[in-house]
Amino acid sequence: MVEMELKYRVLNALSQTDGYVSGGEMAARFNVSRTLVWKAVNQLRRDGHAISTVNKLGYRLEIQTDIINPHVIEDYLEKSFATQKQKPTFRIESLDEIDSTNEYLKRLANAGTGEIAVAVADRQTQGKGRNGKSFFSPSGCGLYISMLLRPRFDAREALFLTAAASVAGARAADEARRFFDDGAPLPETETKIKWVNDLYLDGKKICGILTEGCVDVESKGLSYAVVGAGFNVYPPTEGFPDAIKGIAGTIFPRKPDKPIRSLLAARFVSSMTEYYLSLPDRSFMESYKSKSCVTGRKIAFSRDGRSFAATAIAIDDECRLAVKTEDGKETLLDCGEISITEIK
């Protein structure tokens, strides 16, 4: 067992009890020596975890901290799919820092890694958004997560992966907010979807979705797809950069003493896997439509180098946005950026 994996297993064991866990008990459970358990505890302390030691009793986690723990994610997923006859298998990698979780999984895909691989990071040095835009990805306050999928359908279906991820992300954010309880209840506000791939809460962007794929030239299908989501979980210590502070929001107004990011990651992966395995059914589309913060609002969009003002009418079953321009003409948008004067 590699030291990084053992560290997370020890943290998971300590997180599941308010009492002490002996080094011998963990050594036996994980089939390692007590010395390796001791080293793992010291590494956790260096990471900022308050762990006390009492002779003959063992170790205790004094304060829950929000490290992203892959074993918490694995445990949740195992319970989520426990009743299925054919359970999906997951490869989950937790990274302290990476250039981009999407780029990381694309490298794994090109090396032959199968589905379903998940990469989750505390920080990205080159976080990506749509159209080559950068995505602000500081440490300790966000969740940057990507899933490698090997879909067996036409590349045109990739748009529905983005829609599915948007619903999965909104669902995960809302469920995590219900779990949050530090004595000051949060407003019961629902996460909304801005067509086609952004999540908004209280008028602020809390998450962006980016789907990338590699097309098999012979089959015209996707060789693989990588679906990434970047969540703003808590406010950054130094605030958001000037360029985005007017539109950027967070899922939570403050940081609790709970492993909330692991829960958020687990619920996103669980929902996204559920939708992915039944993608042709498009069971998520009704939620995608009902959660829209665009329908009925004034928008602006660009086409063929020209800018248009319009009203968003509806989202159809093909995930296209139906709009009516100022001259009364109706048209369908199947991709691209739109802007809204005010998001509610």
Rank of each mutant, 00 (worst) to 15 (best):
Q43N: 14
I251W: 13
V10C: 04
D216Q: 13
S339V: 09
L332E: 08
F179S: 10
V37L: 06
I251Y: 14
R254A: 13
E78L: 09
Y59W: 11
A40N: 06
S134Q: 14
S52E: 11
A173C: 06
V120C: 14
E326P: 00
R45V: 10
E238T: 09
T191R: 00
Q124M: 06
I51F: 07
V41K: 06
E218Y: 14
P236C: 03
I98Q: 00
I315E: 08
S219L: 03
R178F: 09
P70Y: 04
L6G: 03
Y104C: 11
R9D: 01
Q86W: 15
D281T: 08
R152V: 03
G19N: 09
D316P: 01
T83P: 08
V10E: 04
A173K: 03
C207W: 09
N197Y: 06
T273I: 05
L277R: 13
L159C: 05
E286Q: 02
I145D: 10
L279H: 10
H71F: 07
P256Y: 09
A117N: 15
D182V: 05
F135S: 09
N42K: 07
A243R: 11
N197L: 06
A155W: 14
A176E: 07
I206T: 00
V120F: 12
D316H: 04
A312V: 02
D198P: 05
R29L: 08
T162C: 07
R267E: 02
S134W: 14
Q86T: 15
T83V: 14
P259K: 05
K291S: 13
I98D: 02
K85H: 15
P235M: 10
L210N: 11
E74H: 04
P70A: 04
S100W: 12
D154R: 10
I67H: 09
E188A: 07
R9F: 01
L143D: 12
C335T: 15
T237Y: 05
D281G: 07
F179D: 12
V21D: 10
R46S: 13
A173T: 05
R156H: 11
G228S: 14
C141L: 10
G213H: 10
V120L: 15
N69G: 00
E188G: 03
I247W: 12
D181V: 05
N12M: 02
K245A: 03
I63L: 08
A312M: 01
V196A: 12
R9V: 03
S290I: 00
S139W: 00
R91T: 15
Y8P: 00
A27Q: 04
L14F: 02
V233C: 09
F301D: 05
D281S: 11
Y8K: 00
E25W: 06
W38K: 12
L277K: 15
Q16S: 05
V196D: 12
T325G: 00
K7Y: 03
